[in-house]
Write a protein that binds this DNA or RNA. Structure first.
Lengths: 138, 138
DNA sequence: AATATAACTTCCAATATGAAAGTAAAAAAA
DNA sequence: TTTTTTTACTTTCATATTGGAAGTTATATT
């Protein structure tokens, strides 16, 4: 495990800009999404997501997210060359942000998004709390 | 007004990655924030925000957001060298995303964020719908 | 008439990203 | 038990994005 020195520096004391300083890139929330949706994931699992993240980028996002405390890395119970990534509560708490992105896209990019995504949006619309809890209480 | 050719291409049909393809940078949501919070803004107003966006970056985010239809640019009623930027409904509809960032940061970056931000988070916690409507129904 | 200002644009150095190839250790296959 | 795969990265390097500073142009102000 490497010691990363990426000092986080916040552009201001605004909670929005500060969150963006931490997760405001094109990949972090997709990593969170994968774990929230599928559960425990391996490096390879993330690599195979449709968006096609490069391994160098994936490696440093994972280590950044781990050092931020939104996810954990642990050993696979039987296979010693595989590691398992999971969300912490801090990570699951990003799920409402993800949900709002889904709702916005469902409204404005409807013709572009997948059927399962539309179903998920429908669930969120009819029962926001329940749907969020279902994903966050894992 | 220049014709920008930035073709948007989506990495996948996921609503989250697609939204990030449009707004997943460090500045777009801050521009939305400024208008949602203060109302109509000028180029200079945005430039003076605490985060310190550069004018080149500001210029191209504004034109990108305008071409995406989340904001509009119009003439100032009396001063012909000033332009006014406003949100469209599509832009206001990004506000719930912003609100969730505020709530997350209020929980996990509490010691770092400003007092007014904490107040806003409190409002959201006690009356989410009402608070969102207050900002989105402008 | 001279000066200042708003809204950009241009240019360039610095940083971030993506793609491809490489490495090490462990697991699976032969 | 030797060979081949597989997993989880790391390294390298070309390219894209960003930040900063210095213009530019058309008003507005003094």
């Amino acid at each position: 495990m490497k010691v990363k020195k990426d000092k986080i520096f916040f552009r201001s004391d605004c909670p929005i800009s500060s969150a963006l300083d931490l997760f405001g890139d094109k990949w972090s929330l997709l990593i969170i999404r994968d774990i929230a949706y599928f559960g425990e994931r391996t490096f390879k699992d993330f690599s195979e997501a449709a968006e096609g993240i490069s391994s160098s980028r994936l490696a440093d996002r994972l280590s950044k997210l781990e050092s931020l405390g939104v996810l954990t890395k642990s050993n696979h119970p039987t296979n010693r060359k595989v590691y398992l990534y999971n969300l912490t509560t801090k990570g699951f708490d990003l799920f409402p942000i993800i949900a709002e992105y889904v709702l916005w896209s469902n409204k404005y990019l409807y013709d572009h998004i997948s059927e399962p995504a539309k179903e998920f949006a429908k669930m969120l619309q009819s029962d926001r709390e329940g749907t969020l809890n279902q994903f966050m209480k894992k």
